[in-house]
């Protein structure tokens, strides 16, 4: 639904361009939409879950973290296969009818990115100075204040988790090609169109798409590097003023 709206608006805005350029724009917009949505959903699950795990020191949670880490390496095609089976007409969620739509691609990506964001968030919270938690508690923080404080203190690590999740989302092929079907004008994203165009021998077109993908990746790593350099500044001042105290 949201995607339909974005798609219509985008097509309206670029209606003056030639069809090939229009397609490139639409592909890029879908890629960003898909990566943003899957990263958002995964962050909403992964950050609180990771923080919770990171604050616990028991064996059980350690085991859970090992499990999370092992999911980092989950082959995307397997994630794609699982989601495909889940959403195909005969599958348990078949009646939703979302296979071969951007939504199904987002679902598949969440399966891939959530463990990543959970794991990095857990490490970020776990590696805070041990006394931070005691200090907050001693100053009167209740359980909710405490979780908020830990998240805020670990904000740089959490930001890294989100950016890495986004990076994985835009560059992933295997899962989205299975569940999205790589349908022209509908479910093609940068990576999957590169696959298609390469197979057809349209190397120039594929290279253009590749350049766009690289550019997005470059921006992500640039933002991350700045953030890590400006340790301690808060995110807002970081992004708006390019850093500073407080």
């Amino acid at each position: 639904m949201i995607w339909e709206l974005i798609r219509e608006v985008t097509l309206q805005l670029i209606s003056g361009l030639d069809p090939e350029t229009q397609r490139v724009v639409l592909i890029t917009v879908l890629t960003l939409y898909m990566a943003t949505m899957s990263t958002t959903v995964s962050s909403l699950i992964g950050i609180p879950l990771g923080a919770f795990i990171g604050m616990r020191k028991s064996q059980l949670f350690l085991l859970f973290r090992v499990f999370t880490h092992s999911l980092y390496g989950l082959p995307p095609v397997i994630a794609g296969l699982l989601v495909y089976m889940l959403l195909s007409r005969a599958g348990p969620l078949g009646p939703l009818g979302i296979l071969f739509t951007p939504t199904s691609m987002i679902v598949a990506q969440c399966l891939l990115i959530t463990p990543l964001i959970t794991g990095i968030s857990a490490s970020a919270v776990d590696s805070l100075p041990k006394n931070i938690e005691d200090t907050a508690r001693s100053l009167g923080a209740n359980r909710i204040d405490l979780i908020k404080t830990m998240l805020y203190e670990a904000r740089l690590g959490l930001f890294t988790a989100v950016m890495l999740g986004f990076g994985r989302a835009i560059s992933e092929v295997g899962a989205v090609i299975i569940v999205g079907g790589n349908i022209k004008w509908h479910t093609q994203v940068l990576t999957t169109s590169i696959v298609l165009e390469t197979q057809r021998g349209n190397f120039n077109y594929a290279l253009t798409l590749g350049a766009i993908l690289m550019l997005i990746a470059l921006i992500i790593s640039l933002v991350l590097t700045i953030a890590q350099k400006k340790k301690g500044s808060n995110l807002r001042s970081l992004l708006i003023k390019g850093g500073g105290k407080g």
Binding site: N131, L139, E153
Partner: peptide, 24 residues
């Protein structure tokens, strides 16, 4: 409240650290 032997600072400004307990 307890003031610790090796106090740790929150990753914020000095004033934000001092305000922490009042805010919660």
């Amino acid at each position: 409240v307890m003031v610790f032997q090796n106090p740790v600072m929150f990753n914020r400004s000095v004033i934000a650290n001092v305000s922490y307990g009042l805010k919660v």
